[in-house]
Amino acid sequence: MIRLSGVCKSYGTARVVDQVSAEIPSEGVTSIIGPNGAGKSTLLSLISRLQPMDAGSVAVGGLDVAATGSRELARTMAILRQENHLTMRLKVRDLVAFGRFPHSGGRPTAEDRGHIEYALEQLDLLTLADRFVDELSGGQRQRAFIAMVLAQDTGYLLLDEPLNNLDMKHSVEMMRLLRRLADELGKTVVVVIHDINFASCYSDTILAMRGGRLLHQGTPGQIMQPEVLREVYDIDIRIEEIDGNRIGVYFA
C-alpha cells in the first residue's frame, strides 16, 4: 500500500500539490487522472522521492520515503517520468540492464540477465535490443524506458503517462501488460494517464485531481460519472456502458 498524508508541494507561491491524503491499495492498477496542471505528475514524483515534499509524508510498502535509503527504495519502487530525454548513446539492452543496478550494483548475475531478457520480451524489444536508443522511434524508445523499470522488478511501479508516443496497438498492449503485472505478479501499478477511458477500462482505483487537490478516489464505476467528471474537467461527458466498461464520450 502507498499511504499519503497531508502531502504538499509549492513552486514559489504556486501550490501544485495541496494537502493530498490517500491510500493506494496494493496489488492493482491505480490511475491518477485530471486536467493539465492538476499536480498529477508532481504528486508522482513526490511519492517516488524524485522531489522533496514541503509537508506531509509518504509511505510505500511501509517504508517512509523521506527516511529510507535510496537504494532500498529503488528495490521497492520504480518510477518513470514523462519526459525522458537521453543525450547519450546507449543500446536498448544496456539501458534495460541498468534497471538491475539497485540489485546487482553493476555486476549482473544470471538472475539479473533473466530479468533483462524478460523485460525485453514483454515490451516486444528483443529484435531491437542491440540498437541504440537514440535511433529508435518515439514509441519504441518509450517501450525501452518502460522495459528498464520493469527489469527493476519492484513491487511498486509508478509510470507518468506511459502511453506517451504509443500508437493504439501498443497503448492497448501496454495497459494489458500493466493489468497482468498486477493480476499475475501482484505488483502495485500507479499510472498518471490522460485518457479517462483507458483509466476506466484497466484500473481498480482512480484518483481524480484538480488544482493540486485530490477531489475523488474510487472505482471506475464511482468516478466515471458525468457529475464527477464535470467537477474534474469542467466539461460535460456522456457515459456509455459498452461491454461492461464505462466509456466517456466527449469528442463532440
Binding site: R93, T109, A110, E111, R113, G114, H115, E117, Y118, A119, L120, E121, Q122, L123, D124, L126, A129, D130, R143, D153, H170, E173, M174, R176, L177, R180, L181, E184, L185
Partner: peptide, 26 residues
Amino acid sequence: MAISAVNRPAAADAASPSAAGRSDAH
C-alpha cells in the same frame, strides 16, 4: 509484446529465445 503469459523470469530458462540472444551478446 504480450507474446507469452506472464511468468516470473527464470534465469535457467535455456529454451527461451533469450538464451540465443545471450550467446549472441557473448
